[in-house]
Design a binder for these strands. Structure first.
Lengths: 155, 155
DNA sequence: GAAGAAGTTGACGTTCACGTAAACTATCGG
DNA sequence: CCGATAGTTTACGTGAACGTCAACTTCTTC
């Protein structure tokens, strides 16, 4: 029994420190995300240490994207993920408990969130495009000013 | 002298409440922005009430854009604006005090910030485009699932 | 010119998203 | 087996970005 190996569960699982380093957050952040029910590590070692699987890391990446790219707060992110989780369940236990009526409900919510997010994305893209044009015209003006200075000092 | 009109300075100037309502922030936010040196109203009434001009409102809009679209914190935003202000001075007092050397310095800083911001914008655009593709494929899957349900219930 | 709405300066409170310290346990290399 | 390193829970602290009184003045309207 005492094989002497390091006791963990699944092969791809990493510990909290590695997960943190890999994704650029702190260990505190990971524990905090768990605390608020945002990201549960898929397993624990026999001693109680968190083990983050591949899917956990992907989920973490998604969380950070939603936070930094879309500017969602952790509450909104939780909503989004909760909804995706529901869909995941739908898919796994294909005829999950209450049928059709419940399925449509979940799909409806998912579609609503999807639409909302697409709207946010579109709005951000608009704003970014405008800002990009602004920045480029300013950059052009800066270059012109520098050329002017060069001409003046060449004289 | 006592014309009886409401005592303010420039015609386009609005009070803090109107400025707040127009830009979707609170009056507290405007006072706070002034407190940290981010946005000084261009004038005051004789009694001491803030008067926000057209340029102030534009600046405020820029602040909110930098905050919400690029996700900058107020410190970074202050940096950006401070730099633009310096350029503005350069332009107004065209040969402002120390010449050339100082001018190039300011231009350099402006160009550096501009480049940094363009990089941030580009990165965000990448992330957004990826997210958009994700969302669209998910939307397609949702529609497919709904069709499936429809077919099942039509039977 | 009196009332009520809006604005002023403090000053303290609040929420979010973690940071940090302490005391203890687990895991790993030797 | 032992020491170093990493992880655990619990709890209090923190910075950013405002919110919320309170006490007072100013502006606008009737």
């Amino acid at each position: 029994m005492t094989v002497g190996e390091h006791d963990d569960d699944r092969p791809g699982a990493v510990r909290i420190g590695e997960a943190a380093a890999a994704s650029g957050v702190s260990t505190r952040t990971l524990r905090f995300y768990e605390e608020i029910g945002l990201l549960e590590p898929s397993g624990r070692s026999t001693g109680g240490a968190r083990r983050y699987g591949e899917a956990d890391l992907a989920r973490l990446q998604q969380i950070r994207d939603l936070q930094e790219v879309l500017g969602f707060d952790l509450g909104e992110i939780k909503e989004v993920l909760r909804c995706e989780d529901a869909l995941g369940e739908l898919r796994s236990e294909y005829r999950s408990g209450a049928p059709d009526r419940r399925r449509r409900e979940i799909l409806g919510e998912a579609s609503a969130i999807n639409a909302k997010m697409r709207a946010v994305v579109a709005a951000k893209q608009q704003a970014l495009a405008a800002m990009q044009r602004e920045l480029e015209s300013k950059a052009a003006r800066y270059r012109a000013l520098v050329r002017e200075l060069d001409r003046a000092s060449a004289r």
